[in-house]
Design a protein around this nucleic acid. Structure first.
Ligand code: SF4
Ligand code: SF4
Lengths: 144, 144
DNA sequence: TTAAATTGAGATAATTTTATCTTAATTAAA
DNA sequence: TTTAATTAAGATAAAATTATCTCAATTTAA
């Protein structure tokens, strides 16, 4: 569904969001440990997310990553996926073709459209606040 | 969604099915040309499909690939995907986690379940006959 | 029987993705 | 001001995926 980089990115952002929601900034080391991801690779992904203004970074002692609390409800899962994998997941043809589409739909075209719309809706309606609250309430677990 | 190998595989099988449906065996060269795929790589993918008894191959002059006509309605898109990519596409967690699942579902869990069930249904209910007929009737196009 | 046309299989190469390493820049505390 | 703790950035490496090449095996036709 998503690339590994994107999965790490989603998990990292959820972890950062859950902590930002409670006023804590978290370090790369803590993030990688909690989401069970390779530290250096995770750093690269976080850099992408910083450049896309999805998360903020602070260097130096007591530095780390955080998300402004007022942004927790406006940042969507779709923003993370788009920043890392692009938005072709739910735009491309399911069979990898290019030109047929609506004009000459194959037998599975509309089923694929439905599936991709479902995915788009999921990504575009789920904000970080929702996910952060879930983690804060102890109901979901990011690691393993 | 699927790997490139899997996309080529699906397109190749549909092309073979459409021709087998009309009693024609097709060569690797013809397949690669019609589905617009790299010939040698396509050969590797076809080998996998032969080993999985999804298609038959015949060597030598006038050889090529074919599917027994009576199998066209029993072979499903799911069989191709499973042979090439495995069945984790609709089994894995959408966020790449491992153990949470039903016991402690995150806010998007059931939406992912729905999406993956839709994909499974699509793959497990679409047989080659359906796709072949569509191609034979000129309604869908495999190349570009 | 020989030659030509095919697929099969294994080795190799190219590309992309994933991952790591090294050094620089920044920040805060000692 | 110096040092330690952090992220940033670029180079490099490892692994996976995609793609190609070479030769063997098979089949049919000449
Ligand atoms: S008609 Fe079928 S092959 Fe064409 S874009 Fe739609 S799903 Fe893909
Ligand atoms: S609860 Fe969420 S993270 Fe866990 S398996 Fe389900 S979708 Fe994945």
């Amino acid at each position: 569904m998503f690339s590994k980089a994107c999965e790490y990115g989603i998990r990292a952002v959820i972890y950062i969001a859950a902590n930002s929601n409670e006023g804590r900034r978290v370090s790369l080391k803590a993030i990688a440990k909690h989401i069970d991801s390779p530290e250096a690779f995770t750093a690269k992904i976080l850099q992408i997310l910083v450049r896309h203004n999805i998360i903020n970074s602070v260097r130096g002692i007591n530095g780390g990553f955080e998300i402004e609390k007022q942004n927790l409800d406006v940042i969507l899962l779709a923003d993370i996926v788009k920043a890392i994998d692009g938005d072709q997941i739910y735009k491309r043809c399911g069979l990898g073709l290019h030109a047929c589409s609506e004009a000459h739909p194959c037998p599975v075209h509309y089923q694929f459209v439905t599936i991709k719309n479902g995915l788009r809706t999921l990504l575009e309606t789920t904000n970080l606040k929702t996910l952060a609250l879930e983690v804060n309430s102890g109901l979901s677990f990011l690691k393993i």
